[in-house]
Amino acid sequence: MTSPTSAPVLRQAPAGDGWQRFSPAQRLTRFLVYLAIVAAIVQSLRHVEVIPEFLYDAPEQMVDLVTRMWPVEWAAYGEHVHAPLVETLHIASLGTLLAIVLALPVGVLAAHNLVPSTPLNLFAKLILVSSRSVNSLVWALLFVGIFGPGALAGTLAIAFRSIGFVGKLVGEALEEAQPGPIEALKASGAPWVSVLAFGYWPQVKPAFWSIALFRWDINVRESAVLGLVGAGGIGMALDSALNLFQWDRVALILAAILAIVIAAELVVTQVRKRVI
């Protein structure tokens, strides 16, 4: 690291402006960041509660875990895993669609070149920031509290978490649209909605689809855990298998989750390659 004393040889260089990589102020700032990082690590190491006995026990527990997981209870798939797995996919897909529907108006509202009103832009951005700062598991907890356990809570949790993501990126894509075609449309006297449909939409369409696909991919992963707090899908099957210590079924569920996560990623890369 570049502390102020680490380059003594360089300082002896003649020719007036002897060479150093950073100015003193820059080096001081960086030094402070390094100091803060080290302090945070030391502080965390000293205070975090780690029970050494558990640590010594870990290899044994790992072996135990593997032997309990093997053989995987493949037979339980039809009865106990298939339906919640499909439900997870539904939660992810419906949640993403709902998020897009809800996020588009907010994204438009957040784009300053489309809605030239700073208070409205800020209001939209506030919605987007709150959506993003709450974890989807927390959204799920809230919706379970309101609608009771089940897929409805999960779908809404996915949707509300995704609004911020989709809306922010769509808003940014809109703000980066080339002004040329839009001026031309405005000059021809087109109404606002037509300017949106013919001036902006064609420009942001590729970005929009890639954002939607990307979010769907993330949502497939996230919807798999929502069931741990009761919001439907495969996570609920995982939760009950864990509570009953059915580790062979846990292994099956993990394999199923892995399969849909990989499948979703493959779908997204293929669609992206062909369409966008």
């Binding site: 558990f54 640590l55 527990q61 598991l137 855990v225 995982l238 996560v261």
Partner: peptide, 24 residues
């Protein structure tokens, strides 16, 4: 990358017990 951190945490809770270490 294939599992959500919360799922990975389940496995570590089994391996190293309840507490911060599993989360870390």
């Amino acid at each position: 990358r294939s599992f959500h951190p919360v799922i990975v945490a389940i496995l570590f809770v089994k391996a190293v017990g309840f507490g911060a270490l599993a989360g870390i």
